[in-house]
Write a protein that binds this DNA or RNA. Sequence first.
DNA 1: TCGAACCATCACACTTGTGTGAGGGTCCAG
DNA 2: CTGGACCCTCACACAAGTGTGATGGTTCGA
Lengths: 121, 121
Amino acid sequence: MRIGELSDRTATPRRLLRYYEEQGLIVPARSPNGYREYDEYNVDRVLQIRGLLDAGLPTRIIKQILPCLDKPRAIVFADATPEMIATLEHERDRMTERVNCLTRNRDAIAEYLDAVLANRG
Amino acid sequence: MRIGELSDRTATPRRLLRYYEEQGLIVPARSPNGYREYDEYNVDRVLQIRGLLDAGLPTRIIKQILPCLDKPRAIVFADATPEMIATLEHERDRMTERVNCLTRNRDAIAEYLDAVLANRG
DNA sequence: TCGAACCATCACACTTGTGTGAGGGTCCAG
DNA sequence: CTGGACCCTCACACAAGTGTGATGGTTCGA
């Protein structure tokens, strides 16, 4: 599919699809006429990227961790350098912290909402 | 305490403490000489702000939800306008999505790491 | 064959959260 | 009373993600 369809199916502006490519997060093929060509795989990929971006991870980090998130990942063992592993461990712990912080604060908001709604319901 | 001590105790650059103030997230008192004066309360406050920022929430939203996160919150029922409630519900759901996305991907990273480490350990 | 609807690159601009430094007050210890 | 360690405001700058538009090529249906 071309960029327009991918844009529709992922609710992502074309501009950003090109930006993600520029950042090395997706690597579309090119038609003879120069148009970008995407496959089904890229739909999930883009959605995953958006989720991680929305969760606060920068493209630089997303680029590093994306390969590990692929489902059939037997191939990836090769490029598991010590630095890479250290990065991943660090990022994993960071994400855990974020999850805790988010959960804590979301629960507080939910609790507040429940109280408010019960108070007027 | 003055800005330097708060900066030390929260591991936050002075610049950012002033920025958070500019964004209305904290409201320090002022000494006669113009110095900002913070109390103990602000330490937790700043840490909470940092956590939420790191979790991807913009200051604009943080400013809205902070009042609901205070522990003795009986007073706050007053300013619970319908728009405010809608914002909170939206943000609560958004945070839940983020938590899910982060958790999913963190687990994938952890799983990958476990596999890699088992593979060479 | 012409126009609409795509696509391309390039570039300028905005917002947010930060870094950094200039220029200048305050206060305390030596 | 002077030096150093604070504090102030102001301002310019940067990276990242994103918006928007200029300028121009391709494709396809009417």
